[in-house]
Design a protein around this nucleic acid. Sequence first.
DNA 1: ACCAATTTGTCCGTATGTATG
DNA 2: TCATACATACGGACAAATTGG
Lengths: 259, 259
Amino acid sequence: MTATGERFAKINAMPAYQQVAEAIERKIVDGGIRPGEPIGTEAELVRQFGVNRSTVREGIRLLEQGGLIRRSSDRRLFASLPRYQRLASRISRALVLHEVTFRELFEAMMAMETATIEQAVDHATAADIAVLEANLERTVAAEGKPGTLAELDTEFHTLLANASHNRVLQLAREPSGLLIYPTTEIIFEKVRESQPRLVAAHRHLIEAVRGRDKDAARSWMRRHVNDWRKGFERSGKSLDHPIERVYAEHLMVASGERR
Amino acid sequence: MTATGERFAKINAMPAYQQVAEAIERKIVDGGIRPGEPIGTEAELVRQFGVNRSTVREGIRLLEQGGLIRRSSDRRLFASLPRYQRLASRISRALVLHEVTFRELFEAMMAMETATIEQAVDHATAADIAVLEANLERTVAAEGKPGTLAELDTEFHTLLANASHNRVLQLAREPSGLLIYPTTEIIFEKVRESQPRLVAAHRHLIEAVRGRDKDAARSWMRRHVNDWRKGFERSGKSLDHPIERVYAEHLMVASGERR
DNA sequence: ACCAATTTGTCCGTATGTATG
DNA sequence: TCATACATACGGACAAATTGG
């Protein structure tokens, strides 16, 4: 910009608290501090960075929300792996704020859930299947309770994702699962046949996983996801409406992260 | 826990700075403050919450990293929609820290990219296709430059996701796209035939989208993603290795968010 | 069970740089 | 040019909780 040209590189474009945050972040990401290891006290960080304690605290706050550092019960800071639940609810919230439609959600779910069950067919262990069956039993027992059914349905699909043993898929599908959840409760309330169809679908999905039958698995999953769409429309809603803002609020509980 | 049992609810479990953050967060999420609207100056927030300046600042830092609030050039605070790029790079970083393998990445990509192109076949506009073609031209022109080719390949798939007009899919696939990127550069360096195959695949994908030919689209995408896997293995790496930590560092630039 | 040291949460006052009018 | 408003950063202080004898 000056007449002399670019003689010097820019220095220090970031405020101090951001530099503190980035320095700690970098140490964690590149392995200098492993998850579970303590970050150090505020006083130590003050000494190392040579800035004021308020500045250090602001830097810490930046990272705290990202899940890279957490606080134990005694309020000490330590490095941590970002949790899937936390990330997923963030993304769900963002999708709501961006006003995505239920149709987008439906189309994406169809792809990700079928992919998930295909991987589950390949990789599920006996233990995975046992957990799925326990979920199915509770689902059968929850007859007539829409809230419980919705919870168990959401849990079933999360368990299926665990059974896929593919963490990329797990994280990719979870946000959609969280957004679908409130609608399923309404569907179970309003559409009588939805519950027996849910139980049948889950039963066949488990059977397909156990029998390593990928075609049956995919076919039942397609049917199951389509059932959601039909139930959704039959309960009087339109696929082309954006997801209601209200759904974002129940997501904040997860991000509140009580101590 | 006490002998009297749970007679009273917990009070004020959160420190003040967290309460400040949550209050602002809630206002934004439930629509009380719309994206683009100012949050108010720090002095105002001090007055409204009745806490000290430092406390307000810590609360603001918590939200700052989440993308719900941002700062304009004059450093004033305003509400904002969380950006996809930012969320995606967060997730990518988390996946690296969780040490997911390239196989998981590959399997998930296969599902999400095929789903993406199917949606693109249904929903792409003429403008979308024009942008894809411009990308293809630049790809042809970048012959022999692995770094540029890798960038353009990543961009192509992001553009394809845009053409799907499904924001759930866009956000679901982007983290994987970011993680694939560094490997493609290596592949273009080491595997000679990878570049012509890339160009051919992209050309056929665009043709399939233009011709609304879903079968061809899916088939070419499967081939394209499989090409990545073959190139990856031929360049001397194993699918069952976790993604290298190094890849997480180039992701931090995006989260740095210079002003 | 008590004490001393440490650490976090919160508050106060002040100074500096920058952008706006 | 000057005055104002604002974010950034620093210094010091105290209470409450926790830790470690």
